[in-house]
Nucleic acid binder design. Structure first.
Lengths: 164, 164
DNA sequence: CCATTTTATCTTGAGATCAAGATATTTCGA
DNA sequence: TCGAAATATCTTGATCTCAAGATAAAATGG
């Protein structure tokens, strides 16, 4: 009898006509996402970051040396709008974690690059982040994690037609 | 090769030392939650609502007649802070969907109740919402949905010790 | 070669959220 | 009883996000 079960029990009493299985499933996804987000935030804040700024720094880091992408490329990877990305970059730049470099080939374009300090920070933070994710997933056995990932991948494929 | 797989492939190339299985799992949960949220939003906006206001109205509706709870009870169900709930209630009250009634027993306290208009709206919206959830879950077979729900429940139990 | 369209980024304005603190009321303990 | 602690709600200030539009540069095509 977890929180979602209590919600379903109320609906069952009030609206017995409703088909509630998907509601339980979606409710648990949302709630689990919330708990996992909070769990990951603890590592981010310990490094002076949040999920948004971590997301940008990590995207630059995993793109490989020289750890530089345009704002448009960052928007594609992180799925946020241009206004959001401008705001994120302004804050990261103010903290000295990234720098903007105007492109020489295209005067409209800018390259966002990790600074030395930004690289050192994300390197540490990612290592801890991955260990933290391992801990957060530890409730499930390895076999259960594999099976869960399989089902999630299948569901996700309905929203993101796999390429390649 | 979905979006999450691409991220994992980049990390594998850049940081082969990292243990990436949990990252895939957590990434898919987050991404699926985002797609499902967008899918559900379409029904909410069609009724002039958003996820936040739907959440409040639905909580009042499933609590049963007379469809009235205190702000504190609503905060417990919806897991938002007091400031957020005050803001949500202000907007719903301005739209005439709920009304605040001062308690007679406790002068600190307020009861938030669905108006006739609020009840009619949430009744329609919930019916459509459940049908929409059924559609959103339709990528998976019933057996897969049951198995997925089982794994999610187990994982969630690690964060929300089941009561009752 | 120039007008139009497209591309890349930034700006603006509004809404949602939270943490921290303010206010008013009730409860509790000496 | 009365002062302190707890409770219930609201306020404030900051951040994050998005949609829509502004700005500037590059590409296109007649």
């Amino acid at each position: 009898m977890d929180h979602v079960d209590k919600i379903l029990a109320q609906w069952r009493a009030e609206r017995p006509d409703l088909q509630l299985r998907p509601m339980g499933l979606l409710g648990r996804i949302k709630r689990l996402g919330s708990h996992l987000g909070q769990g990951m935030d603890r590592v981010f804040t310990a490094h002076g970051l949040n999920a948004a700024s971590f997301d940008v720094l990590a995207t630059l880091r995993r793109s490989g040396a020289p750890y530089a992408l345009t704002p448009s490329q960052l928007m594609d990877w992180t799925m946020v709008t241009s206004g959001t990305m401008t705001n994120r970059l302004d804050r990261l730049e103010a903290k000295g974690l990234v720098k903007r470099v105007r492109s020489e080939q295209d005067a409209r374009s800018v390259t966002v690059q990790l600074t030395e300090q930004g690289l050192a920070l994300i390197e540490d933070c990612v290592t801890e982040h991955v260990a933290n994710q391992h801990r957060l997933a530890g409730t499930l056995s390895e076999a259960e994690q594999v099976e869960l990932d399989r089902l999630l991948s299948k569901w996700l494929a309905g929203f993101e037609p796999p390429e390649d």
